[in-house]
Design a protein around this nucleic acid. Structure first.
Lengths: 234, 234
DNA sequence: GCTCATTTATAGTCAGACAAAACAACAGGG
DNA sequence: CCCTGTTGTTTTGTCTGACTATAAATGAGC
């Protein structure tokens, strides 16, 4: 049994308060309890609370000023691409509008990235993609290993674009997709098998065919979107 | 003289260390000095340093463990879309490859956003865009007011897409663009006037013509890219 | 009623101590 | 000699309590 990496207290507290903000328990403009209150209510010291608050401030969630207290900033100031924050948003029922925003963004970024990858991929990338695809085929997409391979498959594509900013976006979007995937499986709906589509995408990248890579990616995302939204309607 | 908002110490320290990491003074994998050393060398207390380090950890830059010290994480783990981090990267001479990544990302996101905006814009958006355009025309793009209006022009477009994630991306990219703009003007090169192109984009969005909006945005970004890169070569 | 000084609550900073974790060195037994 | 358990040491993690600085709220004076 692998011992899960133990969290320092400030990290758990940041997560707790972060989720409370992200899920709307504290609304933008609201002032959250004083540091001393927060410390006492969670049973930790003030320093731990302060460090947690600094983390949230670094993500654009809050803003502190002496005497005025700590205020939740406007949503527009939130760093929504932060992987942690994105994950926190999906605790509880994610709002439909937000899920649509996510798929819209994926639909903008990922086809373009696939196009780039098809042009710039090295043989090493092709090899790693092939390996990830094999693992997916063998383990299946409902198993943890298969899902890990799925993520890695997409990460390798982003890596092949040789664009640091796109790679970073990949991490963020990946965190969110992971969360929606959890959601899909929680509902235990009959999901369509996306492995054939992955095979198409793999072939397009191997052939160095940008147009085909774009098309395959679009199809892939559309299917994921349909499955996710039908799960959410339930 | 407007008194600039005074920074708390932990914020300045986070910025200092953040810049040192972002500009490559501390490389990924390196272990930075102990908290006590950092505190002494900057003349602040350990708590301030710790809060600064938590902020950097929240952005994915570092990772701390007892006895092992605080280590700079791999670049792939950095939250490059964070506006602060993006700004820090442009302290000093930004690497050419990174500037290209930025324009590549803009070329993927902004034309798609303009397309969306042309379809979804309300009359209120059109009015605000028109106002920003007027300010740009009157103040000129070399004045601070003109540049502010320029940024706002682009922010309004992103807002019109009604996509929270795109809006957040706007903030991040905006921070970076601001930095490159500073760079362009620092070199005092003869910059081409981009106001006519902004007028084209405004017209396309007003007409609700997605294709034209995309085309105008592409042209706009290409021109900025050429100007920026010629400045960097000097 | 308005302006300016005063009060006061809160975040910001500091100092020092102890706890816990992780790595290193060492000792003991096979 | 190697392996293993123990001990030690270093560094981050946490706690406590105090003091400062800031800015919002209040009240005094005009």
């Amino acid at each position: 049994m692998e011992q899960r990496k133990r969290n320092p207290a400030h990290q758990s507290i940041a997560r707790e308060i972060g989720i409370a903000i992200a899920t709307g328990h504290y609304l933008p403009g609201a002032i959250l309890p004083g540091e001393l209150d927060l410390a006492e209510s969670r049973g930790v010291s003030r320093s731990v609370v302060r460090e947690a608050l600094r983390m949230l401030a670094a993500k654009g969630l809050i803003e502190s000023r002496p005497k005025a207290g700590t205020r939740v900033r406007a949503r527009a100031d939130w760093n929504l691409l932060d992987p942690d924050l994105l994950a926190w948003m999906f605790e509880g029922e994610p709002p439909m509008a937000f899920v649509e925003s996510l798929f819209q963004l994926r639909m903008i970024v990922e086809p373009a990235a696939a196009e780039l990858a098809a042009r710039l991929r090295s043989s090493r990338h092709v090899g790693r993609l092939g390996h990830a695809l094999e693992v997916m085929e063998e383990a299946g997409l409902s198993s943890p290993e298969g899902q890990a391979a799925d993520q890695q498959f997409h990460n390798i594509i982003l890596e092949a674009t040789a664009n640091d900013l796109l790679i970073s976006l990949s991490g963020s979007i990946g965190a969110a997709v992971r969360a929606t995937t959890l959601f899909k499986h929680r509902k235990a709906k009959q999901l369509r098998d996306s492995i054939p589509l992955h095979r198409d995408l793999f072939a397009a990248i191997t052939d160095g065919d940008p147009a085909a890579a774009r098309a395959a990616t679009v199809t892939l995302i559309l299917q994921a979107q349909e499955d996710t939204e039908s799960s959410l309607k339930a």
